[in-house]
């Protein structure tokens, strides 16, 4: 019998079906960079509901979009916005103010502490962060307790375990070895904490190319690899393309109108970019190659 190493490549349509109603879903990247948007769009298109979304430590408008599309019950993110373009995500702000979503308040340090507790299967990890602040009051999952060794106060941070982690990276081979261009931000922490990791990549490369520089392999043994060139659009992908500011402005105008009571523009946005295209390739066709190819870094 010949043994064959199994390819982990699946398409974005199949990969997204792994995300089901009520799951805890994490999305990697950082504000304007590196979100697995080809999968985020599919999740909206397939109508997944009641998600707990663990955004990136600083999350961008991908979380805002999921809220606007009605997929989200609860958000865990120390920030949701687009910096100077939108200091806070319009749907996130409105849904939080109106009590339509639950928010798990934390800062970036506590957020990584919670992911690490999940990876270690610990009931909590202690931190000094949050002492003297409102965080343990507004987030009852955080508990101030006395350190058993010194009696000094500490904050207990419970685990955050995503059922599925969505990550966008530069390269992977068919066997789930993933390399970033740049730091990879906090994505390693998502992979370590999550039950299942799905990675969209700009390019699937042969195993030999991974072996040429193994120290660059940041994640290995991920569950699924999805071929998604330009898969982070409208956000940037380090080493490949910049964020699409015009597209983000189009989104923000639609989101702001929707929050103000007129969902017309936003429904059109969803129809054009998410419900219309049957897959990622058709999405790119809708955005159009002149636009896509104009997003170069230098």
């Amino acid at each position: 019998m010949t043994l064959e190493r199994r390819s982990r490549i699946v398409d974005e349509v199949e990969a997204a079906t792994r995300v089901k109603d009520g799951m805890c879903l994490s999305i990697g990247g950082h504000i304007m960079s590196s979100h697995a948007m080809a999968l985020v769009r599919r999740i909206i298109r397939q109508g997944t509901r009641n998600l707990t979304v663990v955004g990136a430590a600083s999350a961008g408008l991908e979380v805002d979009l999921l809220i606007g599309a009605g997929c989200v019950r609860k958000v865990v993110a120390p920030y949701v916005g687009a910096e100077a373009l939108a200091p806070i995500g319009p749907f996130y702000k409105a849904a939080a103010e109106r009590g339509e979503i639950e928010t798990w308040e934390c800062d970036e340090g506590m957020y990584y502490t919670a992911l690490r507790a999940a990876a270690l299967r610990l009931p909590f990890l202690p931190t000094l962060a949050g002492l003297g602040t409102s965080l343990p009051e507004v987030n009852p999952d955080l508990k101030v307790f006395a350190d058993p060794l010194t009696g000094r106060p500490l904050v207990a941070v419970p685990p955050l375990q995503p059922d599925v982690a969505l990550i966008h990276a530069a390269y992977a081979d068919p066997y789930g070895n993933v390399q970033f261009v740049g730091s990879g931000m906090g994505d390693r922490a998502h992979h370590r904490a999550a039950t299942v990791t799905i990675v969209t990549v700009e390019r699937v490369v042969p195993n030999e190319e991974i072996r040429r520089n193994p120290i660059a392999t940041a994640l290995w043994n991920v569950d699924m690899v999805v071929r998604a060139p330009y898969g982070s659009h409208p956000f940037q992908s380090p080493g490949f393309y910049l964020h699409d500011e015009a597209h983000l402005e189009e989104y923000l105008a639609a989101a702001r109108a929707a929050v103000g009571g007129d969902r017309g523009l936003f429904d059109k946005y969803l129809e054009r970019y998410i419900f219309g295209p049957a897959n990622h390739a058709e999405y790119l066709q809708t955005v159009g190659f002149p636009r896509i190819l104009s997003l170069h870094e230098v």
Binding site: A94, E97, A129
Partner: peptide, 23 residues
């Protein structure tokens, strides 16, 4: 975090703590 008395019904929802609590 935001402005208001009731955390579940903020008058103004702020952007969030980002990294400031730990830093």
């Amino acid at each position: 975090i935001g402005v208001g008395r009731d955390y579940r019904r903020l008058r103004f929802r702020g952007p969030g703590a980002i990294g400031t609590t730990t830093m």
